[in-house]
Computed example of a mutant assay.
Amino acid sequence: MQIAYVVDTFPKRSETFVRDEVEWMARRGCLDRVFALKSEPEALEELSDNVRKRIRLLPEIEAPEMYSRLNRLRWLRRQPGLFRSRLMARSMSRESFEQFVLGSALARMLRAEPLPDAMHVHFAGLSAHLARYARHITGVPYTFCAHHYDIFHSAPPNFPVLTHDAARMTTISEYNRRYLIEHFKLPADKIEVIHCGIDTERFDSDTRASAQERVAGESTLNLISVGRLTAVKAQSDQIEAARLLADAGLDFKLRIIGDGEQSAALSKQIDTLGLSSHVQLLGAQASRTVRQELRRADIFVMSSLSEGIPVALMEAMATRLPVITTGVRGIPELVIDQVNGVLVPENNPRALADAIHDLAADPTRRHSMGESGRQTVIESFSADKEYRKLAQVWERNVSR
């Protein structure tokens, strides 16, 4: 079965789960092409040649051009009734019209080579709408995965339509599935849970010294956090917790990996609190660097106000790191409090600082949590298992 991926940006450093899934499909001969509106040049070097050569960028179409382009669409003459009621009545919004034209461009590009068996989309955003229009034009079915932001913060107004027209919908947590059914009234039998998978071997940390050995060789506690610098990730709570830890005399360093609109504000907060010797903002980093930072750390910290099941958290656990995180939304499906990590309330720097302080004093407990966390990821979130489940979804539900 040949699958074409449709995503807004590919590759994208903050979406390694999409890259890893595409690479897995390519290695098994299932990848047709990857259609994207844009690419991040710095992330291209992390792709295999096999995937890189399959990327097709959709054309940039300026709004003034769209009406003339529409008039030249051959398929419209062949299927005049498909969108006639909306187009002739001028009832289609500008946003929908742009999606329609880009979806038509996607259809033409699909037809430029042998058609795939299906399209798969990550996020219920623009790319899902393009796949929907392309499906009407070409007959190629699509599936899509709803993650987190596209459910709780920027959900499409036509979620039921996207789901109805899709061969299948997947989402990354059981919490998400329940919410989609209850809040958007989507049909339960149309939605399946497929976790974002982790290549557990890539994040194996055999070379990382045990917690006991590290404490013996180095007194400084190394904390690591990975995530986009946005308000919902609440890294400001981590910095406030760092102030409390510094005031308590703990010898530690907190290194925060990620970039985003909160970067300047967080940098100012660090300077204002006089924490430059304790807290570092490392910016966005390549996957290889992230793995190196995880291996040198003692504890992973996450302070999000809202999450699905974060890939960064899985990667830390796969590296045998004990994790301290807020217990929001899908996270309790991954982290069992006091077993493979510690759950704290959101928006509570004091609770976060107390949890860090407690684990800092107990290396044996850190080691036990780290081992338990890795076992959890291997058993329930490994890439091979989750991607095979996705392939089975296509085998059961896709036919043109």
Rank of each mutant, 00 (worst) to 15 (best):
A166C: 08
R168K: 09
M169R: 05
T170I: 07
S173C: 13
S173G: 03
E174K: 07
E174G: 10
Y175R: 05
Y175K: 14
N176E: 07
R177L: 04
L180S: 02
I181T: 13
E182Q: 09
E182M: 06
P187S: 08
A188H: 10
A188Q: 10
D189I: 01
K190N: 10
I191L: 15
E192F: 13
E192N: 13
E192W: 11
V193R: 12
V193S: 07
I194A: 01
I194Y: 01
I194M: 04
H195N: 12
C196R: 09
C196L: 09
C196D: 09
G197P: 00
I198N: 06
T200R: 03
E201V: 12
E201S: 11
F203T: 03
D204Y: 09
S205A: 14
S205Q: 08
D206W: 09
D206Y: 14
T207H: 15
R208P: 00
A209P: 01
S210R: 02
Q212N: 04
E213V: 06
A216V: 11
G217N: 12
E218V: 06
T220L: 08
T220I: 10
L221C: 02
L221E: 03
N222D: 11
L223P: 00
L223C: 02
L223N: 00
S225T: 01
S225A: 14
S225D: 00
V226P: 00
V226I: 08
V226R: 00
G227K: 00
T230A: 13
V232H: 00
V232N: 08
K233Y: 02
